[in-house]
Simulated assay, not measured.
Amino acid sequence: MVQRILEAGDIESLDHSAIPRIRTPERLAVFSARAARLRQLAALSNPIAGYLRLMAALADAQQAVMTGFKAKPPSAELIASAQQHSMPLIPALSGVRDPAWHEVLIQLLDKLQAAGLLTPPLEALIAKLRTLDAATLESQADAIFAQRFAEVDPASAPFIMAALQVVWTDLAADIDKRDVPYLETLGLCPVCGSHPVASTVRIGGVHDNYRYLQCGLCATEWHMVRSKCSNCDSTKGIAYHTLGSPDADAATKEAESSKAALKAESCDECHTYRKIGYQSKDYDFDPFADDLASLTLDLLMGEEGYRRASPHPWLWPEQTDTATDPSSESD
């Protein structure tokens, strides 16, 4: 049986009620699966293998903490208001956040230290994180969500973000998909309003051949047609880029591209890109983990004049010196 790939126009002509709009995270597996994928990618002679292993330990800590954590769910009034105004159901940037995430951060740090993977610079960073007061933590969270890069501490941000992810992923795992509003901005998560980290063309079941964006905060996935920019919604000037043999001829490059499980989807209208993965090429593809582990593709896209549509939640663009940068961990 030959399987036909649906193009953007074909998908848009379908009954949208037949396409599952939302995929909520699996509470018991979301972070553990991410950790496993990070370790798998680190083992492939990745240039940031040490950092990927550290982040795998952080993802394991997230899974362990979420097992005993329960966030306060949104009220019926909040759900009704979000639906009425086409706003995110549990907005991350606006409103008052549950301060429970401060304690989640401490628990994550405890578990990281217990894992025994710390270098002296990382020990110093964890000690610093433990001293931050509530106002400073909330200020950092605001800067991270608003992508005010000058205010974000790149070394601390991945750990702060990890704590916030536990809370919002816990909330997203329990929502009724029917409660999730339709947003006017299709490129933002309808649950929390955050940016997607990357997208996946899935295989199997009701999601087969459909592209889903994954939220970098709550891990919710939402359907978006292919050949459309997830940043500006344009269908013009969409192209796909892969890492291949730089000196290969055109036919060889095309063959390499057709086999690639990970590509960068660029848009010439807004000059941004996001990565897209194909489960048919690599079933274990994880948008969060694979995006983090593919910095070489980011470098290629920068050389070609494109910028990331949004930063990876665990790797911020501004760098600190190696005395406080957790990525300085040796392999």
Rank of each mutant, 00 (worst) to 15 (best):
I5Q: 05
A8C: 05
L14R: 02
L14I: 02
R23M: 08
R23E: 08
A29F: 09
V30G: 02
A33R: 15
R34L: 03
R34Q: 06
L38E: 08
A43N: 12
P47W: 02
P47E: 01
G50P: 09
L54M: 09
K72P: 11
L78K: 09
I79E: 10
S81F: 13
P88E: 13
A92W: 09
V96G: 03
R97H: 05
V104N: 01
L105M: 12
Q107T: 11
L108H: 01
L109I: 14
L109G: 05
Q113N: 09
L118D: 15
L122R: 14
I126P: 01
K128A: 09
L129F: 00
A134S: 12
A134W: 10
A135F: 00
T136D: 10
T136R: 15
L137C: 04
D142K: 13
I144R: 12
I144H: 13
I144W: 14
P158L: 12
A163R: 00
Q165A: 00
V166P: 12
W168A: 02
D170A: 07
A172S: 12
I175V: 07
V180Q: 08
L186D: 13
L188I: 13
V197S: 11
A198T: 15
A198N: 09
T200Y: 13
N209A: 15
Y210A: 01
Q214N: 08
Q214I: 13
C215Q: 07
C215P: 11
C218F: 02
W222K: 06
H223E: 11
D233L: 03
T242G: 13
T242P: 07
L243N: 03
G244Y: 06
D247P: 03
A248N: 08
A248K: 07
D249W: 01
T252N: 04
E254P: 01
A255D: 04
A261K: 00
L262K: 15
L262W: 14
E265L: 14
D268V: 04
C270I: 06
Y273K: 09
I276N: 10
I276G: 06
S280W: 03
K281R: 01
D282R: 07
F285V: 11
D286M: 11
D290A: 08
D291M: 14
D298H: 01
G305K: 05
T322L: 12
P326C: 13
D331W: 05
